[in-house]
């Protein structure tokens, strides 16, 4: 691995000074589970690695019934699923982060890093899109908040400009009659990268029979994670039924433009989008109706 300078700024101001220096290739370090591998493989070249884990803004983890969830960019996955309030309030998020790598990866890896690594198959991104999460981006000159679905621009690429960092991710508060679910297809039980992933968030009426709001996110079926806007919108005001859910799943399928690679042929991915969208919706509906839907953190043998 090439050598570089390692910095641990304690304030955002220091961070921007380090990031802004001319002719200095900088990379931001959070959990390092992607960055260190890429540096070791020689896929990246850097002059300076800036470890932002000591910035208070990046360490926040606040689950508030009115404000929603504030998820600092360097909070590792294990801290999220060890927080009972978050496990109970945002089970769809837990579905995804508790299957990213193994336990030892989850001890280091962060949702902020998953987003900034901007892989099309990132497990946490579809469910962030489904929850309607936003990215808090801070730069020396200005701050901006953008929806997660607008963050990634291509494989490994995103809208962060030189001098900017992702500080936190914000998930809106969830009303009582809402539910969310993420699932992916992999050819084995654990430790694999999604062939296709689907996340759904639903708000139902008080009886749990009609859709008030639906958002669907997809992974590994396009150069970026996708927001299946039309698929969600067409369910609004419709009754929960196999027929309406099938229509939404077909709509999600129609926007998928997957590639064939070592994990699966494109046709198979296309098929999976429909199956997984349907299942993600049912999981979200069941949760919205107060039924138990297991995941890697909450399962039946506990």
């Amino acid at each position: 691995m090439q050598n570089f300078e390692y910095c641990t700024p304690r304030t955002l101001g220091e961070t921007f000074d380090l990031l802004g220096e001319n002719d200095c290739q900088c990379r931001v370090l959070a959990g390092g589970t992607d960055l260190i591998v890429q540096l070791r493989q020689g896929a990246l070249s850097v002059d300076r690695v800036i470890d932002i884990k000591h910035l208070p803004e990046c360490k926040q983890l606040i689950c508030d019934p009115i404000e929603g969830l504030t998820l600092g960019a360097t909070v590792p996955c294990h801290r999220i699923y060890e927080d009972k309030a978050i496990v109970d309030t945002y089970p769809g998020l837990i579905d995804s982060i508790a299957i990213i790598g193994g336990i030892q990866i989850q001890g280091r890896a962060t949702v902020g890093g998953n987003l900034c690594n901007s892989s099309p198959s990132a497990d946490s991104i579809p469910i962030l899109i489904a929850y309607g999460a936003t990215c808090e981006i801070v730069g020396a000159a200005e701050n901006r908040r953008i929806p997660v679905e607008n963050f990634c621009t291509g494989p490994g690429k995103n809208i962060l400009e030189k001098g900017e960092i992702l500080v936190a991710i914000h998930l809106p508060p969830v009303p009582k009659s809402s539910g969310a679910h993420y699932l992916r297809f992999i050819p084995r039980f654990e430790m694999d990268i999604a062939v296709v992933g689907a996340g759904a968030y639903v708000e139902l009426d008080d009886e749990g029979r009609m859709f008030n709001k639906v958002r669907i996110g997809l992974a590994a079926v396009a150069p970026t994670p996708l927001y299946a806007r039309e698929a969600g919108d067409l369910l609004k005001g419709r009754e929960v039924s196999d027929e309406s859910i099938d229509a939404a799943a077909s709509s999600a399928q129609s926007i998928a433009r997957p590639i064939s690679d070592m994990r699966a042929p494109a046709e198979y991915r296309k098929h999976l989008v429909k199956v997984l969208t349907r299942r993600a919706l049912w999981g979200a509906i069941n949760r919205a109706r107060g039924e138990f839907v297991p995941n890697a953190v909450q399962n039946n043998d506990q």
Binding site: Y6, G32, V37, R40, P76, G102, I103, Q104, I105, R108
Partner: peptide, 25 residues
């Protein structure tokens, strides 16, 4: 590269791959 777990250590009570941590951390 973080796939096999042979280099596991426990840091501040948390299981991690020591190949995916810079020693400076």
């Amino acid at each position: 590269d973080g796939n096999c777990g042979a280099c596991n250590v426990i840091i501040d009570g948390v299981l991690m791959n020591s190949c995916l941590i810079f020693a400076v951390e």
